[in-house]
């Protein structure tokens, strides 16, 4: 398969994690795998753009209308803005957490079975400085896959499993920052297979 070279700055943990997260999404949302569910993104987009529009409207109103007269509506706008941005922050913090990919697919095997997968990731940093002479421990990409298979529109649970795996970023990126996509995908595909088959 022809693919784009993915190159990142090795020193930047955010870039490394983003590249891995993007690769997760790309692999899992292939047509024969899962259909991505964009709810998390859509909720944040809706809250975010609503707050931006309110801020814009409030500022415009405050600019057009004389200060004393504009106060009640400007208060309303500012309070609404604070509420919406807080909701968005709380959503990211408590609901979305580290989620990278949410997807599902339906299968027709005697009955309709729905499979859902949630993938979350984070960067694990080495806990402490390496002991003298010991090898330097690299920061790691930690990925968790949660899988649920159900039928009867979610009422009967058929299978449920979770798989977690941690690998150093150095296994997927060379010293120039080029990503070994095949290796990453092979690792991830192995994990997906494992979680779907329900091995712990």
């Amino acid at each position: 398969m022809e693919r784009e070279v993915i190159k990142v700055n090795n020193m930047n943990m955010t870039e490394l994690k983003n590249a891995c997260d993007d690769a997760v999404k790309k692999l899992l949302s292939q047509p024969d795998l899962f259909i991505e569910n964009h709810t998390h993104t859509d909720v944040k987009l809706a809250l975010g753009w609503a707050s931006v529009l309110i801020a814009g409207a409030t500022a415009l109103y405050g600019w057009k209308v004389e200060f004393e007269q504009s106060k009640p509506l400007v208060w309303t706008g500012v309070i609404l803005y604070v509420i919406l941005t807080s909701l968005s922050t709380l959503y990211s913090f408590f609901v979305e957490k580290n989620t990278v990919f949410v997807g599902k697919r339906k299968m027709l095997a005697k009955r309709i079975e729905t499979e859902r997968i949630i993938i979350s990731s984070q960067t694990d940093f080495p806990s402490s400085a390496p002991a003298k002479g010991a090898a330097h421990e690299p920061p790691k990409y930690s990925v968790t896959l949660q899988y649920v298979r159900s039928s009867n529109s979610g009422k009967s649970l058929l299978a449920k499993s979770t798989v977690n795996s941690v690998k150093g970023y150095n296994e997927f990126f060379d010293e120039a920052g080029t990503m070994d996509q095949e290796r990453f995908e092979k690792w991830l595909a192995g994990l997906v297979e494992k979680v779907v088959e329900g091995e712990e």
Binding site: G48, W49, S51, V52, A55, G56, T58, A59, G62, V74, G77, V78, Y81, V82, T85
Partner: peptide, 13 residues
């Protein structure tokens, strides 16, 4: 847009 919006709202607030 959020950066601009937060600036405006901090000013108005």
């Amino acid at each position: 847009a959020a950066v601009i919006a937060s600036g405006l709202m901090i000013w108005k607030g």
